[in-house]
């Protein structure tokens, strides 16, 4: 074994520069994984796509107008993002703990928030690839047409829906870690019930004002409602709130969830170090 050649001190970034480096470093496995693991890509594209087809055929069986087919397709896209939040964001820190990565994140000088943001960026890219695949395939299969009435507003709504959604995912990651092995169940609990309450496959307005208001705490609800209003021409008014108002609410949700993520992460580390939960591994 040869002698060590580099005994010189190594420069290490701190502050914002460290945050930036750590964030992209954590995003990297996900960005690269999109190319390397076709299995995941297929699973997260095919499952929502099949679900979407099922809902489209239900609409066809009931003789629904063509725009409802489009609603179902949008629901499929939203499902890809939501599944990504549940299984690749919320549960990720728990899995990282199980695999032994979490303790290495913690003992590194990188802020945990940078690690979570990296996960979110990587997760978003993963989900976007799947979401847009679903959008294109399903739109072609079922001949869905789109008419964008206000592109900048639509893009802003999309951006803040995603920012709010991934902020929520980051917050959930800490909560899941605190919940330990119950996390698995939590993700399951938040699938179909969220498909229902967020109006993924139908206009959320159909649930009534009270339920739709509560469901608006989830960025997907407002985002889907806003985007549907901006890209489909419908005979009836399908919107729960005006898209402009929904945008403002989405900005608010983004701020709330990102702050909550930061707070819960700090709390988690504090409680975890006190109670030894960051190092225990249970099956």
């Amino acid at each position: 074994m040869s002698a060590m050649r580099s005994a010189e001190r190594v420069h290490k970034a701190v502050g914002a520069s460290l945050f930036w480096r750590a964030m992209w470093a954590r995003a990297y496995p996900r960005l690269i994984g999109t190319q390397r693991e076709m299995g995941w890509l297929l699973s997260e594209t095919i499952l929502p796509l099949l679900g979407t087809c099922g809902f489209v055929f239900v609409y066809k069986a009931t003789g629904a107008p063509q725009e409802f087919i489009g609603f179902a397709v949008m629901g499929g896209v939203a499902t890809a993002f939501w599944l990504n939040i549940l299984w690749s964001m919320a549960s990720q820190l728990y899995w990282d703990k199980d695999g032994g990565n979490l303790e290495l994140y913690i003992i590194s000088p990188a802020p945990l928030m940078s690690i979570l943001l990296g996960m979110a960026i990587g997760g978003f890219v993963m989900a976007a690839v799947r979401g847009f695949s679903i959008l294109i395939i399903a739109s072609l299969l079922f001949q869905v047409g789109y008419q964008v009435s206000n592109l900048p507003l639509m893009l802003l709504i999309f951006f803040f829906t995603m920012a709010g959604l991934y902020g929520l995912g980051m917050m959930m990651a800490s909560v899941y870690l605190a919940a330990g092995r119950e996390a698995w169940h939590l993700s399951n609990a938040l699938q179909e019930p969220i498909y229902l309450t967020s109006g993924m496959y139908f206009p959320v307005k159909a649930l009534g004002a009270a339920v739709a208001t509560i469901a608006s705490a989830l960025p997907l609800t407002l985002g889907l409602d806003g985007i549907r209003q901006l890209i489909f021409t419908t005979q009836t008014d399908i919107g729960f709130l005006a898209p402009e108002i929904e945008l403002l609410l989405l900005i608010g949700l983004t701020v709330i969830f990102l702050s909550a993520a930061r707070y819960s992460l700090r709390k988690l580390e504090e409680i975890g170090r006190r109670e030894g939960r960051l190092i225990e591994r249970r099956k």
Partner: peptide
């Protein structure tokens, strides 16, 4: 219920 609502909306 998701199916019920989809059905009912139409």
């Amino acid at each position: 219920l998701l199916l019920v609502i989809m059905y009912s909306v139409i």
